[in-house]
Amino acid sequence: MNWKLTLIMLTLLALLYQPVCLAEEEEVWGGADGLAEDKITEIAPDYEPWFSPIWEPPSGEIESLLFSTQAAIGALIIGYFFGYSKAKKQEKNN
């Protein structure tokens, strides 16, 4: 039962992303945060950001490294929890 449900949901996820993957025209796929930044400068051309980040990743590669680190830290904890809990449950059942 749960397997079926999981499968249905994964299929739904895939369907959700199908139009994105099949998009033919060259889209920018830029970040929405950046688009909002552009709009702000459009609405208020005189606005000057009054503070800038104390540190910025020196390049796009390093930024993606740090983003993957963030995801990896999270995934590690989740994986540990599930592995530990599952083994503990099996132990109890035996």
Partner: peptide, 8 residues
Amino acid sequence: AFAFVLSA
């Protein structure tokens, strides 16, 4: 951790 993964 879930918020960490998803927001990355």
